[in-house]
Design a protein around this nucleic acid. Structure first.
Lengths: 211, 211
DNA sequence: GTCTATATAGCGATAGAC
DNA sequence: GTCTATCGCTATATAGAC
């Protein structure tokens, strides 16, 4: 039995529509820039329904953030395992992060805006789950380095750099579009991005090509 | 003769205090998150004075942005000139960008928040001055590449990556602090960052050591 | 459960005394 | 030029009809 009433598909449809609309609107203006009215219009529902389902604007924002974090967690980290060759692992990791930037830019921007605000809501995630994952992946890096498969660089900083390089194509795409004079980031641009980031990471970490 | 009355140092002191306070407050919450009241309190002045000097919140925000862009322009691009060896040039460029992230994190965050919002105000700068600078620096990269001093990578994307890697230490420092379990990013952390980013860029671009 | 109409608060902006 | 007091609007949130 759920804590919330579950009377059929109406609730699921409405909440899903609200969450999808909220993600788009929060991505455009952040928490403070978003208007409940705008979310309601975009979801095709009266504003009062948002409050009926989620109570307050902050709880709706939390729900959006949690959905983002949940689906984010499964994404790329599984590439970094000791059994794999670092060339293959890092190529897959970078590609998975770039795919996320291309396919779910709103999610990336909401997360970026939350960090810019000082991460009042996702701090527990950062200091917990994410910190642990970086520690785990750092052990794999150390393993590869002692085997002579890659250089000794501070693993955490390598991840900070990979996150930054890949997420910039979602978070700051307006800058990239302006510099490249493009209306939208197309497949060719993301292919160039993948080639560049992969080259910087693989050659930068001294990874020799996989056999 | 100025368009604004200049009766002495009172105006200059007040406007300077307001701009400094505004930069801090806008850096914390972005345009929408900032409160004129908060800026006034932090500047030690009544709120009405902000409107007396700057008219509206948006014009105060524009003034902060312009100050940031002005001092940003002179910063790092002068490293990328054909006469220099790419090893020295890229090392200096990365270091200059990291110094900016360490010394003026609020400026970096305000710019990041502006990009996240779709760059309504700095779009002319992006499509004009910044695009031209990237084109100029790209020519230098092409020059170095034809001389065999570095690999052929898409120059614009290399800059996107360098910007991302260096600015992440200002914009998303809360994430880095959480993962590293540090209260504040200290000199050692920035030294590790410099070593990592420089390694990724130099080795990633296939730059051989300068003679 | 769903919607219309409204209450309440907070913010940007201003009037007007000094 | 500087400040206090206040206006008017907008946005979140809710009351209550259906």
């Amino acid at each position: 039995m759920d804590s919330l009433p579950e009377t059929g598909t109406a609730r699921r449809d409405s909440t899903a529509a609200i969450l999808a609309a909220a993600e788009r609107v929060f991505a455009r203006g952040g928490f403070d820039g978003a208007r409940m009215n705008e979310i309601a219009t975009e979801a095709g529902l009266p504003k009062a329904n948002l409050h009926y389902y989620f109570g307050t604007k902050e709880r709706l924002y939390r729900a959006v953030l949690e959905a983002i974090l949940t689906q984010w967690l499964d994404a790329a980290a599984e590439w970094i395992v000791p059994g794999r060759h670092p060339a293959e692992a890092l190529t897959g990791y970078v590609q998975a992060k770039l795919d996320h930037a291309r396919l779910r830019p709103e999610a990336s921007r909401i997360f970026a805006a939350e960090l810019l605000r000082g991460a009042p809501l996702v701090m527990p995630f950062l200091a917990g789950e994410q910190r642990r994952r970086v520690q785990d992946m750092s052990l794999v890096f150390a393993h590869w380095a002692t085997q002579g498969l890659m250089d000794h660089l501070p693993p955490a900083h390598v991840f900070f750099c990979i996150w930054a390089m890949t997420q910039t194509y979602a978070d700051f795409d307006v800058q990239i579009r302006a510099v490249l004079a493009q209306d939208a980031l197309d497949g060719q641009t993301f292919a160039d991005a993948a080639a560049t980031v992969t080259a910087l990471v693989l050659k930068g970490c001294g990874v020799r090509a996989a056999d």
